[in-house]
Design a protein around this nucleic acid. Sequence first.
RNA 1: CGGGGCGUAGCGCAGCCUGGUAGCGCAUCUGCUUUGGGAGCAGAGGGCCGGAGGUUCGAAUCCUCUCGCCCCGACCA
Length: 436
Amino acid sequence: MRLSRSLLPTLKETPAEAQIVSHRLMLRAGLVRQSAAGIYAWLPAGLRVLRNIAQVVREEQDAAGVQEMLMPTIQSADLWRESGRYEDYGREMLRIRDRHERDLLYGPTNEEMITDIFRQSVRSYRQLPQMVYHIQWKFRDEVRPRFGVMRGREFLMKDAYSFDLDYAGAELSYRRMMLSYMRIFQRLGLKAIPMLADTGPIGGELSHEFIILAPTGESQVFYDAAFEEIDYAGSAFSHQSPADLQRFFGLMTTQYAATEEKHDVAAWDKVPPERRREGRGIEVGHIFYFGTKYSRAMNFSVVGADGQPVYPEMGSYGVGVSRLVGALIEANHDAQGICWPDSVAPFPAAILNLKQGDAACDALCEQVYAQFAGEALYDDREERAGVKFADADLLGHPWQIVVGPRGAALGRVELKRRVGGAREEIDAADVLGRIR
RNA sequence: CGGGGCGUAGCGCAGCCUGGUAGCGCAUCUGCUUUGGGAGCAGAGGGCCGGAGGUUCGAAUCCUCUCGCCCCGACCA
C-alpha cells in the first residue's frame, strides 16, 4: 500500500473521548473511527489487523476439526421464544420489527439458531459429534459501552458450537476447544489463563474464561503464580487424542485460577501466600458446557443406536476477535505507539523514503516495495523524515525499512526492528529474505 | 439505569460568569528556504458555536426542552 494514496489518518493529538491506551492508539494510528457509542468503522489498516487475528483463529479452529460456516446477524424472535431467552435476555438484546410487524433481533449469540439448523438436518447418532463455528458481527446493547473496541456494542466474535451424544463426548469437545484456544492466544503472542467462570445468560454448569492480564482489564482475577511457569505451547498435545486432551485439561485446571464471581476463598487460602496473584484481566475468550439446555428446550433429538431419541449435549465457545485488537495493543505498546506481534501486524514492514523525490531513494524504495508485492506499507509522502519515523512507530510495523540518500547511492537500506530498536544496514535486494 | 462532565474548524482547546456578530495551536492549501526523529518564514481556505424553542434592538454567551458523546457506579463477551 502506498501511504500517499491510503486512508490512514494518523493523529498527532489524542481525541478527548479516548481514555485507555489501546483506544487512544487505535484512533491515533487510524485503525478505527467511532460511528456511535460502542460502534466503530474499521479503516483499512484496522481491518487488516482484524482479518489477521480472524485468520489465526480460523486456522486453529480448522486444525481442531471445527467446521466454518456463516450465520446471519439478524434472527427471528420465534427461535428465542422457544428457548425462553427472548424474555430473559433483557434490554441488552436489540429488538427490531420488520415491515410486516414481525419481531426480529440483531443476534447477540447463536445457540438458538445453530440448534435450529441442526435439528432440521441431523437425525441420527451416526452424524455426531460435530463442531461448527462462524466469525460474525454481534450486537449487545450494553448499558455503557466503553474502552473503544474492548467493550463495544457491535463486535466481531468467533463463536463455535459443539454437539455430542453424551457427557463424555461433550467433555472431549470442551477440552479440545480449550486446547485450540490456548494455541490461538499463544500464536497471537498473548499469555492467557483459563479461569473458572460464571456462565451468565448462556447458562450451563461448566465454564472457563480466558483472561489476559492487564491493568486496564475489567475483571478482577485470582490465580496461582504456578501458571506463569506453565509451558503454554501445547504443541505436545493432539486434538485427536483423548488422553492428551485430558492431560492438557489437567495442566490448565489443577492450579487455582478464578474470576471474581467464582472466587473460592477456602481454595484460595490453600495456595501458598507467595504464589497468590491478584490483578485485573481482560476476557478474550469464554467456553461453556451446558448439556441439553437448548436441545431439550428446542426439541432437538437424534435417534440413538438403540432406536431411542437422544438429546445432544452441547457447548458453546467464543473468542472476541475485535476485542483482541484492543487487548493486543494493551499488551504490546510503548510511548511511541503500537508494537504489533508479527502474526497480526497490518503490514509486516514499512518502507520509509526519507527523501521523496530523490531519484536514487525513489528507485530503491520501489525496488524494495516490489519485493513485498504490495504487502508492505510504502511511506511515499512528501513528508520530513521525523514525521515518517513517528507514524511508523505509531502504526507499530514490526520492521521499518529506512531508505535515505546516504545508503541509497550504494543500494543499501537500514532495517530496524520496532521492538528493541535494533538496526542493521543491508543490501536492498536482501530485505525480504532477512525479514522472513 | 443512578451520579457527574462535555458538545465552538479535521484534532486539541479558549471565549460563556459580566450578551455586541468567533479566536489560538496543530492539521490542510500555495510559495520560498529546509530535509536521518513530528521544520522555518510569508500568505490562504475552512465554523448556522449539537438541535429546537424562548428572552432581547442584538444570543456561542441568559432560560427551557431535546439529541449526542465521555467518565464513575450498578451490569455484561
